[in-house]
C-alpha cells in the first residue's frame, strides 16, 4: 500500500520534471527558430555598410543613423523610467502595503501595462509635441526626448510591477534585523532591501528595456524619424524599429534584408545588455558578501 503511494508520488515527480524540461526545450526551440529565420533572411545585409550608411537611400541604405538614434532614445527612456519605476515600486512594497492607495496604484499600473503603445505615443504627442511646437513657434516640434518619454511610459509599469513583487519577497527577518539596529527606513530600503532584491529589480529593468527597444508605433508621432543622423535630444531622430518598419514595406527585397538585419541588431543589443548587467550585478554581489 505505502509502496504504491510512494511509486505514484515518484511517477508524478518524474512526469512533472519531464514536462518541465520539455517546456523549457519548447521555448528554446521557438527562440532558435525565430533567430534562425532572422539571421538567414538578414545575413546578406549584415556588413560594414549597415553601420556606415544612413537610411536616406544613399546607394543601398544602411542603418547608421537609426542605430545611433535608438541608442540615444532608449538610453534616455530607461534613464527616465528606471528610477521612477523602482522608486514607485518601492513605495508600493514598503510604504503602501495593504493601503487603499497602494492597491489602487498597483491596479492602475497593471492597466497601464496593456495600454496600446500607439495610444501612449498619441498621449505624449498631445502633452509634449504640440505644446513644444506652440512654445517654439514651430522650430522644435517632434523630438527624440518626446520619443523617449513615450517609451518610458511603456517601460515604467514593467519596472514598477517587478520591483514591487521582488521587494515584497525579501524575507521580513531582514527588515527586522536592520530596524533593530536603528537604521532609518530610507537606508533600509535603499541599502538593504533593494540590494537583496537587486537581481529581481534588474530583471524588471531589462524586461522593460527589451519591451521598449522594439516599439515602433509610439515613435512615429514623437521622435518622428530622420533620414539623417541627429544627436540632439530636441531633434527629430531615427530609430531602429521605425527603420525596420519603413524597410519592410519597401518594394526592394534588399531592403527587407536590411530590416531583418536591424531586427537582429535589436535582439543582440538587448542580449548584450542583459549579459553585461547580469555580470556586473553578479560581481557586485560576490564582492559584498
Amino acid at each position: 500500500m505505502s509502496a504504491n503511494v510512494y511509486r505514484r508520488r515518484y511517477a508524478k515527480n518524474v512526469v512533472a520534471q519531464a514536462l518541465a524540461s520539455a517546456a523549457a526545450l519548447l521555448a528554446l526551440m521557438f527562440l532558435a527558430w525565430i533567430l534562425w529565420v532572422t539571421v538567414s533572411r538578414g545575413v546578406q545585409a549584415i556588413g560594414v555598410s549597415l553601420f556606415t550608411k544612413i537610411t536616406a537611400y544613399a546607394d543601398q541604405g544602411g542603418l547608421a543613423n537609426a542605430i545611433i538614434g535608438s541608442l540615444i532614445i532608449d538610453a534616455m527612456a530607461i534613464a527616465l523610467c528606471a528610477p521612477v519605476g523602482v522608486l514607485a515600486g518601492a513605495y508600493l512594497a514598503e510604504y503602501a502595503r495593504g493601503t487603499r492607495m497602494g492597491e489602487t496604484i498597483r491596479f492602475l499600473n497593471d492597466i497601464l501595462l496593456s495600454a496600446p503603445s500607439i495610444v501612449l505615443g498619441l498621449f505624449v504627442y498631445v502633452i509634449v509635441v504640440l505644446p513644444m511646437t506652440a512654445a517654439t513657434n514651430g522650430s522644435i516640434t517632434f523630438s527624440a526626448l518626446a520619443g523617449s518619454i513615450a517609451l518610458a511610459l511603456i517601460g515604467l509599469p514593467v519596472i514598477v510591477r517587478t520591483t514591487d513583487e521582488m521587494l515584497q519577497l525579501v524575507p521580513s527577518t531582514l527588515r527586522e534585523a536592520a530596524l533593530s539596529l536603528g537604521i532609518p527606513q530610507w537606508k533600509l530600503t535603499v541599502q538593504v532591501l533593494m540590494r537583496a532584491a537587486g537581481s529581481g529589480i534588474l530583471t524588471g529593468v531589462l524586461l522593460a528595456l527589451a519591451r521598449l527597444a522594439g516599439e515602433t508605433a509610439p515613435l512615429l508621432f514623437t521622435a518622428f524619424g530622420n533620414n539623417y543622423t541627429a544627436l540632439s535630444p530636441l531633434a527629430k531622430m531615427a530609430s531602429l524599429p521605425a527603420a525596420i518598419y519603413q524597410y519592410t514595406n519597401d518594394p526592394n527585397p534588399a531592403m527587407h534584408a536590411i530590416a531583418w538585419a536591424g531586427a537582429l541588431l535589436i535582439t543582440l543589443f538587448v542580449l548584450a545588455l542583459s549579459l553585461i548587467a547580469r555580470a556586473v550585478f553578479a560581481r557586485q554581489k560576490t564582492s559584498h558578501e
Binding site: 537611400y57 522650430s139 523630438s143 540632439s232 535630444p233 531592403m255
Partner: peptide
C-alpha cells in the same frame, strides 16, 4: 540644443507610397 537642431533641416510626412523615391 535647439540651435543645434535647426540647422537647415526641412521635414515632410505622409504617404508611404513615395517614401523610397523621396528618400
Amino acid at each position: 540644443f535647439s540651435a543645434f537642431a535647426t540647422a537647415a533641416d526641412v521635414t515632410g510626412a505622409g504617404s508611404s507610397f513615395v517614401y523610397p523615391v523621396l528618400s
